[in-house]
Every structure is written in C-alpha cells, then in structure tokens.
C-alpha cells in the first residue's frame, strides 16, 4: 500500500486513526462478503448469480474514500483467495479468480479507486440533491473501470474476441447502473445521518 505523504502514524492520534481504519476496512470487507452471499437474481440457469456485490464495492468507495476503499476490496479478495466461501454462490479459493469471471473480482480494485476519488470530491463540494447526483456520477464512472478488467479477463480465459465477451456481459449493465443509483441515494442519506463520520480523511 502506498504510504501517505505525511506519515504521522508514530504519533498517538495518527496511531489511533490507523487502528480505527483497520476496523472500518475489515467491516467493509465483511460487508462486501455479506452482500455477495445475499441471494440475488440468477442468470443462465444459476451459472451467473447477480448479487448486491457491486453495490457493496461502490458503497465502500463512497463511504470510505479511495485509500481505505481499496484496502477493503483487497481484504475481501484475500478472504476469497484463502478459501472462504465468500464469492458469489458460496464459492471460494483461488479457483474463483482463475475462472472466467475472476476479472470481475480483480476489477473491483480500479472500480473502488475511481468511485472513491470522485465521491470524495462530491462529498467535499456538493450538498443535497447535487450530492446525490455527484455520487451517482461517481458510481457510474466506476462501472467501465470494472468492465474493462472483467471483459478482458473473460475474453482471455474463454479465447473469444473482446466484442463477444462484452456482449455476454451486457445484461449485467442494467443492474450495475441501478446499483450505482442506489449507492448514490444511500451515500447521501448516510452522509446526512452520520455527519463527520463519512468521507475521506475522517
């Protein structure tokens, strides 16, 4: 992980914040796992479950900011890799990453960075309905970041052209746009409910 420009973790307040960050990162990694396991819609006869997973990743970006958001995603991916059945359909282990949809897990990393950076900007500058709109924009911007990695991975594993792989993923786009909208509404509501808790650098 990149070290912050000003490293104050040696001082007591900095150390306390680092400890609180660990708690938040861990709980949001757990949130991604929990929303992945909540039964969702199943496409292609159960082969591809549509879950609230991308909602959780977008919320991690919105509510934690880019740095802690990435750490939460990496912690979730570590949970998958070490063999906990926290990937969709109660799967777990390295096989999930090696499979054709593994790119949609790895792609959470660029996704949460894009969402986190833009959402931090929106949370600093915007209020009310503009904030919701700004967070929606941030959520939408995260979708291509996820799909680029996911589709390239899918095409590489299956050996199909990129265009074909992209067409296979088209049905999911509707759901992901809807999830970005939900994340925006939830993000601005939580920012109002817990002022001083949400946002970068807090």
């Amino acid at each position: 992980m990149p070290t912050p420009a000003v490293d104050d973790r040696g001082s007591a307040p900095g150390r306390d914040r680092a400890t609180r960050d660990i708690a938040r990162v861990a709980v949001f990694a757990a949130l991604i796992a929990a929303l992945t396991l909540v039964p969702g819609l199943y496409l292609f006869g159960g082969a591809v479950p549509v879950t609230l997973q991308t909602l959780a990743v977008t919320l991690a970006g919105v509510l934690l900011g880019p740095r802690r958001g990435v750490l939460a995603v990496l912690t979730y991916l570590a949970m998958v890799v070490v063999g906990l059945p926290v990937a969709s359909g109660f799967r777990g282990g390295l096989g999930v990453l090696a499979g054709p949809t593994g790119g949609f897990l790895v792609g959470f990393v660029p996704m949460v960075v894009v969402v986190g950076v833009l959402a931090a900007l929106a949370l600093r500058r915007l209020r009310g309905a503009w904030l919701t709109a700004g967070l929606f924009g941030a959520g939408l911007a995260g979708i291509p970041a996820l799909y680029v990695v996911g589709i390239a991975w899918l095409a590489a594993v299956l050996g199909v052209p990129l265009g074909t792989a992209a067409a296979m993923m088209a049905p999911f786009l509707v759901g992901d746009v809807a999830k970005a909208a939900v994340a925006a509404v939830v993000g601005s509501a939580v920012a109002r409910a817990l002022p001083g808790v949400v946002g970068p650098g807090r």
Binding site: M1, P2, A26, A29, A34, L37
Partner: peptide, 26 residues
Amino acid sequence: VGVDPEQVAMTIALAIRGVGLVVAAV
C-alpha cells in the same frame, strides 16, 4: 514500503469475524 504483514493478517481475521456481524445488522 509501509505494509505491516501482521496488520494485514489482523484485518483479514477481523473481516472474517465481521461477516456474521454485518449479516446480523442487515
């Protein structure tokens, strides 16, 4: 480069414990 391996293992262990807590909250 600033990565504390013990801290990483601690975070993963906390996250594993956290799944049940978050599911209960939902």
